[in-house]
Design a protein around this nucleic acid. Structure first.
Lengths: 298, 298
DNA sequence: CATATCCGTAAGCGCCGCTTATGCTTTTCG
DNA sequence: CGAAAAGCATAAGCGGCGCTTACGGATATG
C-alpha cells in the first residue's frame, strides 16, 4: 500500500510547484522530500514527476494520484471531525481567513464571545486576499473563511468548498461636511471619494455605482482600512459607500442613507465540506452567526 | 493527522475480533498491534476499544472510524489501480475465490490462457464457501470471486462489491444405466440421486426441483466433486442435475436432457468496485469471459 | 482449580527517515 | 556573457519510531 505521508508530500509539491517550497511547508528539508518522492515513485512504478528546467512538474499520473490523495485527506478530515465531535471536544485550532473589509466587527465580536464560551478553541485569524483565501482553504491552509460578495461580482468557487450566508448587509452612502445634504449618489459627482484600493470587489462596486449615476468618481483617498473611511467622512473630507455592519457597530458621526435600489452585499462563510462537521469549526461559525444577529441565515 | 497504518490495524481488529488474530493477519505480534491501537487511541482522543472479557470490542466511535478507514482504503485501491493501468502493468497478484461447483472448467481454462497471454499476472486461487467469499472480498482478502446463482436463491449482496454476469448456464438432467430412458424429473422418483452436500445452493435447487416434480429424492451420494457425479451417472449408479458447462467441457458418457422450464444458473464474477479498474483484475476477468464463450456478458 | 487465551506494559534493538554536506543543472542578473 | 543563485539529487550519518521478546494480570474453559 502506498504511504500516505509520501502522498501528502506529492500533494504539497503539486500545490507549491517546487520541492523546496513543499519541503518548507511541511517543515522538512528539500532533501527529505526529494527522497520521499523518489520512494513514492519507486512504489508507484510509474514516473510521477519529470524535471522541467531547474524544477519539477507532475506527470498526468502524478496529477491523478494527487486527486486521489485529496479524496483520502477529505475522508481523513471527516474521520477526525467525527472523533472531535465524539469527544465533545470543543477544542482545537481553527484557522480563520478574513478580508479586511468583510467583517472586522463581526470577527472581533465573535472572538470575544468564543473566548468566554469555548476557551478550548484557539482561533488563528489571518487577513488575506479573497483569491488566495479560497484556494488556501481548499488546500487546507485555512479552515474557515469570512468573505463577502457584491452584486454582479461573484467570488470564485472551488469544488469541495461550501459556502453558507451569514448576513445580507445593506450598502449605505455616508456623507458629511459640505455634502451632508446630498440624498443620492448622483448629487455627489463633484465630491471627493474614499474607496478601497483598486482591484477589490468593493472598489469595483463603488466605482460602478458612481458610473451608473452618471459620473466617474473623484477618488481622492484609497485605503483598505474602513476605519479610515469613517474618519474621513466624519470630518467632511470625503464621502464613501460603507457596509451597514460597519456603521451599526462602530457608529458614525455623519449622515448615512441607503443606496438607490437597496443593493446589499452578502457576507458568507466558506469551509471545506469535509470539515463542516468539526465541532470547533461549527462553534466558530455559530459565534459569527450570533454576531451577525438573529436575522442571520440557518 | 491520523496514521493510516494504525487505522488499518483497527480495521483488522474490527474484522477479526481479537487483537491477536488481527496481529496474525497483519504479520505482527499481538504486542505490536496493541501498541499501535494504544497510540491511535491517544491520537484520537476518545476510547476506540473497550475490554470485554478477555478480548476487546470496538466502541461506536471505533466503528465509525473503521468505516472511514474503509473509505480511505477504497480510494487508495483506486489510486493503485490507476497507477497499474498507467504502467500498462499487466502484473501483480490477483487473489481469486471460486466455489468448487461454480466454474472448475472455467477457471482452469482461464488460467491456462492467462499463463500465456499475461505471464506477469500471478493468480492465487482459493476454494471457499460462498458466504465467506463475498465477505472476504469485501474485506480485501480476495480480489475476484467466481460465483453462481440459482433461480430463487440469490447470493448475499455486500455494499461496494459489484457483480457482473459471466454466463447463463443451462441445468441438465444426466441419466444413465437403467434410467437412461427417462425424459423428465418426474420419472426419477425411484432413482438414486447424487447431489452436492446439504447447505449449498446447488443442493437446495436440486431438491426443490424434485419436490416440484412430486417426490422427495433418494439422495444416495453426496459429494462436492462434480467429477464424481459424472462418474456415478456414467456407470448408472445414480442420476444427477448437472450444469451445462460441466457437460460441455468434460463430456459425459450418458444421456443429458434439459430440465423442464429450461432453468439456468447464472455464473458471475464479483469484485470490489474500487478494484474494478485494476488491469490485472480486468485481465483475469476477461480471460474468464473468453472461457465462458462469445455469449458471455459485456 | 488448573490451564490456556488474551491483553497490556517494559525493555531493548533494528531500521526507516531525517539532516547535513556536496555536486550538477538551469535560470537569472549584473 | 559570465557569475551567482535556485533547485534537485545523492551519499553519509545519526536519532527516534516501532517492532520483538519477556512478563504479569485478567478471564474464559475443561
Amino acid at each position: 500500500m502506498l504511504d500516505l505521508t509520501r502522498l501528502v508530500a506529492l500533494r504539497e509539491l503539486a500545490l507549491r510547484g517546487t520541492i523546496a517550497a513543499a519541503a518548507d511547508a511541511l517543515g522538512y528539508t528539500a532533501s527529505a522530500v526529494s527522497q520521499q518522492l523518489a520512494a513514492l515513485e519507486r512504489e508507484a512504478g510509474v514516473p510521477l514527476t519529470i524535471r522541467a528546467g531547474r524544477g519539477v512538474v507532475l506527470t498526468p499520473a502524478g496529477e491523478r494520484l494527487v486527486a486521489r490523495t485529496h479524496e483520502m485527506l477529505d475522508t481523513m478530515e471527516v474521520a477526525e471531525a467525527e472523533l472531535r465531535a465524539e469527544a465533545g471536544g470543543l477544542s482545537g485550532t481553527v484557522r480563520l481567513a478574513v478580508f479586511q473589509s468583510a467583517a472586522l466587527t463581526l470577527v472581533t465580536g465573535a472572538l470575544i464571545d468564543l473566548r468566554d464560551s469555548h476557551p478550548g478553541i484557539r482561533v488563528v485569524v489571518t487577513q488575506t486576499e479573497p483569491e488566495e483565501a479560497f484556494a488556501d482553504t481548499w488546500a487546507r491552509e485555512y479552515d474557515l473563511v469570512v468573505a463577502e460578495e457584491y452584486p454582479h461580482h461573484s467570488a470564485p468557487h472551488y469544488p469541495g468548498v461550501i459556502r453558507r450566508p451569514l448576513v445580507r448587509d445593506a450598502l449605505l452612502l455616508a456623507v458629511g461636511g459640505e455634502w451632508a445634504g446630498a440624498a443620492s449618489v448622483a448629487e455627489l459627482a463633484d465630491a471627493a471619494w474614499v474607496m478601497e484600493p483598486p482591484g477589490t470587489a468593493t472598489r469595483h462596486f463603488a466605482e460602478q455605482t458612481c458610473r451608473v449615476a452618471g459620473f466617474e468618481p473623484d477618488v481622492r483617498f484609497a485605503s483598505s482600512d474602513l476605519q479610515a473611511h469613517v474618519q474621513l467622512v466624519e470630518r467632511g473630507l470625503a464621502v464613501a459607500i460603507l457596509p451597514g455592519l460597519m456603521v451599526e457597530h462602530a457608529g458614525i458621526g455623519a449622515r448615512v442613507i441607503p443606496l438607490e435600489g437597496g443593493p446589499r452585499r452578502t457576507v458568507f462563510t466558506a469551509m471545506r465540506a469535509s470539515s463542516r462537521l468539526d465541532p470547533a469549526v461549527q462553534a466558530v461559525r455559530t459565534a459569527l452567526e450570533e454576531q451577525a444577529g438573529p436575522s442571520a441565515g440557518s
